[in-house]
């Protein structure tokens, strides 16, 4: 206890970081959301947010984020499950994670080539007799690429949850006559729910705010909350409205965290 004061002195850089880069930015966004485009104090931005244009956009953004999260989970869970059954599972997990360290832009760029009019995907469709289609700039390509980018973040927490699972539970369920499906539904899934929740959290929130993919892959057809913020800040230069959307995005973020927040004690 006696060394408390000394630690405080050391800790000044960290406090400065909290004040200037955690608290101040949030307050500034809040502050800016109260000014209209001409710099006058008003609540017009909030009024505008509740017009059909912005509400539709929000709804749309949520719908896409939901789809992205859903498909990520759909593919991530079996992958994580099967990974825990392999030999050298840590190595395989590492191989799942490696693509997530490749620059995001490059992955998006790769799909420009693959999904292009003459790209590999269309070649494949022609070979199997479906014929070439417009793939780039559709909802499908947007969701596919987003799932591609986010799936490692979904696999990791689920893998960790499954990995911690005590195998004797499964044996017990088996011994008591549960079928594989029942064991999964009643034992495995509930016990790994925390992993699923944190996976959904780390996918859903970024999916709400994607803005680079919407431009590159969906050709501005999909407008998410992130795209709208970027547009208002960097293109229209209406920081007030941009901040207002950001305020709502922050609110949604806290709601989602509260909803999926599996509070564990400690860290």
């Amino acid at each position: 206890m006696g060394n408390k004061a000394k630690f405080n002195l050391y800790s000044i850089p960290y406090f400065l970081w909290i004040v200037f880069f955690v608290i101040a930015p949030i307050l500034l966004v809040l502050y800016y959301s109260l000014f209209d485009i001409d710099g006058n104090f008003s609540l017009v931005n909030y009024k505008n947010f509740f017009t059909p244009v912005y509400l539709m956009m929000t709804l749309n953004s949520f719908w896409y984020a939901f789809l992205i999260t859903f498909f990520s989970l759909l593919f991530a869970y079996p992958t994580a499950y099967l990974l825990t059954k392999t030999k050298h599972k840590q190595l395989w997990l590492l191989l799942i994670i490696v693509p997530s360290w490749i620059n995001l832009l490059l992955k998006a760029y790769a799909f420009l080539g693959i999904f292009g009019t003459y790209g590999a995907a269309n070649k494949f469709l022609e070979t199997i007799g479906i014929g070439s289609k417009q793939i780039l700039f559709t909802d499908f390509s947007f969701i596919f690429v987003s799932v591609y980018i986010f799936i490692p973040f979904m696999i990791l927490p689920i893998f960790n949850a499954l990995n911690k699972l005590n195998p004797t539970f499964m044996d017990a369920a088996n011994d008591l006559g549960a079928s594989t499906w029942t064991t999964f539904r009643r034992v495995i899934f509930p016990l790994t729910l925390d992993g699923v929740k944190s996976g959904c959290q780390v996918v859903f929130i970024p999916a709400l705010s994607l803005f680079m993919l919407t431009r590159l892959i969906s050709g501005n057809r999909v407008i998410t909350l992130g795209t709208a913020i970027e547009q208002h800040f960097l293109v229209i230069q209406d920081w007030g409205m941009g901040s207002t959307i950001a305020v709502f995005l922050i609110i949604f973020m806290f709601l989602i965290m509260a909803l999926t927040g599996a509070r564990k004690r400690g860290v």
Partner: peptide, 27 residues
């Protein structure tokens, strides 16, 4: 409290971080 403050920037979407820092640096 400190742990929550600490994780704000981890869970915040990049767009929010970018936009709020833009305001911060300009101010």
């Amino acid at each position: 409290t400190f742990l929550s403050l600490n994780s704000v920037l981890i869970v915040s979407p990049d767009v929010i971080i970018g936009a709020s820092f833009l305001i911060l640096f300009t101010m």
